[in-house]
Write a protein that binds this DNA or RNA. Sequence first.
DNA 1: TAAAAATGAATGTATACTCATAAATATGAA
DNA 2: TTCATATTTATGAGTATACATTCATTTTTA
Lengths: 218, 218
Amino acid sequence: MNIYSLNHEIAEESPPALLGRKERHRLLRRADIIKAAEHVFALKGFHKATIQDIARCAQYATGTVYLYFEDKNSLYFSIVEEKIREILRILRLKMAQVKGARMKLEVFIYESLYFFEKNKDFFRIFIQEETTWSIKSKFAKSIIASKRREAFAELIREAQAEGLIRKDAQPGQIKDLLESILTSFAFSWWQNDSKREKDLKAMTGIIMDLFLNGAKKR
Amino acid sequence: MNIYSLNHEIAEESPPALLGRKERHRLLRRADIIKAAEHVFALKGFHKATIQDIARCAQYATGTVYLYFEDKNSLYFSIVEEKIREILRILRLKMAQVKGARMKLEVFIYESLYFFEKNKDFFRIFIQEETTWSIKSKFAKSIIASKRREAFAELIREAQAEGLIRKDAQPGQIKDLLESILTSFAFSWWQNDSKREKDLKAMTGIIMDLFLNGAKKR
DNA sequence: TAAAAATGAATGTATACTCATAAATATGAA
DNA sequence: TTCATATTTATGAGTATACATTCATTTTTA
């Protein structure tokens, strides 16, 4: 058994069964809108995406969107929040299933790529989010974002403690390095269109190698 | 003599002295507006920045901006174009002054950081540009941006040919990686506020080290 | 006094958001 | 099961606002 054979079907965080039927239906409709918004935001960017676009894409009228979301901003942040929460949950779960910093690292990279692949629309939004300024501040202060940073820092610390990763660099720098590699690879890999599962594993190996050993010829 | 002692004062590309007095003055006024726009765009982002903001910042009336620029878009792209042209010129010049891929690489990193530091407003715009408008943007298709990519690719190719950088990765990937590392490090470095010249050299060293040798303990 | 440059009120457009109305759905008494 | 009523949900034309852009007028410079 290797890390790739771990089951990808993961139960939802909060089983909607606990809620009443109405509330559950409401959440489904909400999810429809989120999905459409994800797509439109990714395609056009925050400002050029109109509520009408999103409503049309979700097959609702404009006004309906406002029955589920306060305004355009909160719709946008709901997407980011929910997705980050989701990947964080997956990463924590998967990483808990393996032992040792090296394997955890491998799982981290693989699952991140896998998630990006499964959520291409979100990925576009995510890399914008990471760099975009004014919105960034709001996002950066959010609880979920800080949890993500925490989980990240924990991984690095563990890897340093175990002697896998050098200690003569600040954890923050290592984190930036790994994140840079991940997004840059995911980005270019996703621009071209070879995205089969097979490539995913190969890509994980390449990234591990570059992250740990660098670009230098040996 | 090391790479850091290279003179930073570089002559302008096209000496305005060749132009008539009027045209020269016109260019100065134009430059005022560009500078203001750079600041406002960086602060607020493209969409939230208004022409009025920019005009006020440049101490002109709204309409005046339109005497120098077609519209908001062209003003924005003028900034990106001019700055990219400038850093490209600097990078080419400085890299030509040293021998060997390793030193060229070091110069590349150092000068990029230095330029970002001297042009913080532009840097904000640049990282947005790189990710947000991404592929489809006017910018990505512009001649100057492609020239920059070309110069970048050349550096990597040279480093591979010389045996500094491994050949078992695609040049494009290495290029993307380096770019991503550079911007991400510049970003977090510039968010904290240690920005003295001294740190610039240290940061160059750290980036070189991490890029070439990776994160593994040795 | 002519030409060039600057001005900012006025115009047009785009779109986020509201709300009166309509449609759909649920309810429960007959 | 049926139907009248109540409740919930959806609709999209209409409103308000923000802003890019224009241009008749004023100010500055030659």
